[in-house]
Structures are given as C-alpha cells and as structure tokens.
Amino acid sequence: MIYVIGIGPGCRDLMTQEAISAMEDAEVIVGYKTYIKLVEDFVKDKEVVQNGMRKEVDRCQDAIDIAKTGKKVAVISSGDAGIYGMAGLILELITKQELDIPVKVVPGVTASIGAAAVLGAPIMHDFCHISLSDLMTPWEVIEKRLRLAAEADFVICLYNPRSKGRSEHLANAFKIMGEFKDGSTPVGIVKDVGREDQEKFICTFDTMDFERVDMTTMVIIGNKSTYIHDDLMITPRGYTV
C-alpha cells in the first residue's frame, strides 16, 4: 500500500485529518529531506527514507520497492501531492512496471490556496497555475502559457517563481504578461505560506519587487477586476453587491 500525501504548506493546522491519519497508519515515510522535517511529529519511530532535490524518481522507486515487501508506505509532498507533487510520478512508475500495488492519493492545501487565504480572495474567479521552473518544461512552452493566460485574463498563480539559478525568469515572465496586464493590476506575494516566518506583500504589476521573491514564494497576479482594499487583494466573482 502506498499513500501519496499532500502535507499542505508546512504547518499542522493546514494538514487535513486524512493526511494525518495516513501518516500515522504508514510504517515507512518517504520524502524530500526538507519536507520530512515538517512532519517530524508524525515520524516518531517509523522508518524514514529521504533524499535531496532532483532525486524524485529515485525516491518514488524506493517507495515502490518498499511497498512490494508488504509495508505501508507514505510518500509526502508539500502542498497537494497532485499539483507539482509525487502523485503523478508514483502512478506513472506503477503503471509502466505493471505492478499491483494499491495507491491512495491524499489531497492537501496547495500553496496557491494557502497564499490566497492570506491575501484575501484573489482567486475567486477563473485562475491557473504556471510553474516558472524549466527543469521539466522548456522555457518556450512556459512563455506561451504565460502569454495565453495573460491574454485570457486569468488570475495567474506562479509556482517556482525565482531561484539563484533562474533569477531572471520572474522578470521575464512579467515582461511577457505585461503586454496584456495593466500596470495597476494587483499582485500578491506570500513567502513561506503557513510557516513561522510567513511574509505577505501586496503591490501592483508596475511596482513589483522581484528581489522579494524566492523558491518558497507564491506570486498571484490578478485579473482586470481584481482590486486592493486596505491590506486585502480581492477578485470579484460577479455577484451584484
């Protein structure tokens, strides 16, 4: 048995009861070492298998190999396991290897939803997720998605917005979206959603400070109706009020 668990942004309060129950039921916990630290309360005397970045395939294969022995395994992802998490990879490996291992995907609070709650209500209408990481997706494809999403006036949630190795990706993304996004469009920035050092900033498209952003940051760009009131970012759904 393999549980693929979304543990939420990082704090216990934003973990679902199903996620907690699945971790408690598992005999082995498998995950990225940074995420293992976030669930130390649930690890206790369980067997732990952890590794670093870019070892996702190895990590999931380890979980599958352990599950073959009959043990219950929990593979953890931050946020939701099915949104840039490990659910897809686990299922790909199991189906390609034609294995008969039951898999239970346990949903979690993804970063965009956690950040939206901190900001107010920025994703009340149609929105999309776009990752700026070009490790898995060619930058040309990311550019096309940014352009089309901005042209369609989606609220846009940017994952993996800026890292040391990709320091210009966010600025380039704003340049692409700028053809369709007005300079007064609200932008919400939340760092370390749900964690002790969480930070929140609200600005406009033209006053965006890219230096505030790193890989633990969620950036949400509003649509033409989004507005700022006091310290809140609000996208109307269209109700008559």
Rank of each mutant, 00 (worst) to 15 (best):
E168K: 15
E168I: 12
H169G: 00
H169L: 05
L170G: 01
L170N: 05
A171C: 11
A171N: 14
N172Y: 11
A173T: 03
A173F: 05
F174D: 05
I176V: 14
I176S: 04
M177C: 00
M177D: 01
G178R: 09
E179C: 06
K181L: 08
D182R: 15
D182F: 09
D182K: 14
D182H: 13
G183F: 06
S184F: 14
T185E: 11
T185D: 06
P186F: 02
P186Q: 01
V187M: 06
V187W: 03
I189S: 10
V190N: 02
V193G: 09
R195K: 14
E196I: 12
E196T: 10
E196S: 15
D197A: 13
Q198S: 07
Q198V: 10
Q198N: 11
E199R: 15
E199G: 09
K200E: 08
F201S: 12
I202A: 04
I202R: 00
C203W: 03
C203M: 12
T204A: 04
T204H: 05
T204F: 03
D206N: 14
T207E: 15
T207S: 13
T207P: 01
M208G: 05
M208E: 06
F210Y: 13
E211D: 15
E211S: 14
R212K: 15
R212Y: 12
D214L: 03
D214I: 04
T216W: 12
M218P: 02
M218Y: 08
M218S: 07
V219A: 00
V219S: 01
V219P: 03
I220T: 03
I220V: 00
I220G: 02
I221L: 00
I221G: 07
I221Q: 04
K224M: 13
T226I: 11
T226V: 06
Y227R: 10
Y227F: 15
I228F: 10
H229C: 08
D231F: 11
D231W: 05
D231P: 08
L232A: 07
T235R: 05
T235I: 08
R237T: 12
G238T: 05
